Computed example of a mutant assay.
Amino acid sequence: MSVRREATKPGWYPAWRDEAIEQLNVKNAGLQRDFHLGTWARYDYDLTAGKLLFSEKGVVKVVAKIQIAGSTSTKASNWLWAWSNSNLPGDILSDAKLVRSFGEENGIDELAQAYVADAGNDLEALGWELTAAMVRICNAPGAYRSPRGDGGGLYLILKTIDWAN
């Protein structure tokens, strides 16, 4: 006899994730207020160094240390957790691996499986929801989304952020 296994999650998880999204919105609003995120003329990230730089007129103004949460793909219509992406440097995946462990320990498939399908037909919302869960689990000060060429996004969590010297 075979038993069909559907995606699992504990009963408390949907409310917990909704709270994580609310918390991230508050944190990101604070980053926008305090560091003007979203207003800088340019940003660059260095995945090898684990840094996100915001600049204006060629001068770096804000520096953040980052970890990668994951990425969305419009072509595949899904989310890929950073810990499962072999193209990313291992040094900036430790927080994503914590999320995977949290998902495995608590029976939350969308945190423990490499890919999450975009069932709600809102890929950006899915990316922010899963990133918010990572921000909450890792107690990060916020997150940032970098657009990608295929229409998806690369979701980064900020570990630290400060004005450049």
Rank of each mutant, 00 (worst) to 15 (best):
V26M: 13
N85S: 05
K57A: 15
V26D: 14
S73I: 01
G30D: 12
S86D: 11
W40T: 07
S77L: 05
G58E: 09
E56M: 12
S77P: 00
V59C: 10
E56K: 15
S86G: 07
D34H: 11
L37P: 04
P89H: 04
Q32R: 14
V60I: 15
K65C: 04
P89G: 04
S73K: 01
A49P: 04
L52V: 06
K27L: 15
A29M: 12
G58H: 10
S77C: 04
K57L: 11
L88Y: 08
D91V: 05
L88W: 03
Q23Y: 08
S84D: 10
I21R: 15
I68Q: 00
A64T: 08
T39A: 14
Q23T: 13
N25T: 12
S84H: 06
Q23F: 08
S71W: 00
L24T: 14
Q67K: 01
A49H: 08
A29P: 08
N78T: 07
L24M: 13
F35W: 11
G30S: 12
L24I: 08
T72N: 05
A49Q: 14
H36Y: 13
L31D: 08
T72M: 04
R33Y: 10
A29G: 13
I68V: 15
F54R: 08
W79K: 03
A64N: 08
D46K: 09
G38F: 05
F35Y: 15
V26Y: 13
A69I: 02
R33Q: 14
N87E: 11
V26G: 10
G90E: 13
L47G: 05
A41G: 13
G50W: 01
A82W: 00
G58F: 09
W40L: 09
I92S: 01
D44P: 01
G50Q: 04
L80T: 06
L52I: 06
S71K: 06
K75C: 02
T74Y: 02
E22A: 14
G90C: 03
W81I: 02
G70Q: 02
W83I: 02
G38M: 07
A69P: 04
K65F: 05
Q32I: 12
F54P: 06
G50V: 04
L47P: 03
G90L: 10
L24Y: 03
D44I: 08
S73P: 02
N87Q: 11
G50Y: 03
V63P: 03
E22S: 13
N25K: 14
S77Y: 02
A29E: 15
G50I: 04
Q32A: 14
Q67W: 00
L80E: 05
T72R: 05
T39N: 11
L37E: 08
A49L: 13
L88E: 00
V63N: 07
F35V: 07
G50K: 02
S73L: 02
A76C: 02
K27F: 11
D91Y: 05
E22Q: 14
G90M: 06
G58S: 10
G30Y: 07
I92E: 00
I92A: 01
G30F: 06
N87K: 13
K75E: 12
K75S: 10
N28S: 09
G58D: 09
E22H: 12
L47S: 05
W83V: 00
L93F: 02
T72F: 04
I68D: 01
Q32E: 15
R42F: 11
F35E: 08
D34C: 07
E19G: 13
L37Y: 09
G70K: 02
L37A: 10
I66Q: 00
K57H: 14
E56N: 15
L37T: 09
S73R: 01
L24W: 06
A41S: 15
A64W: 03
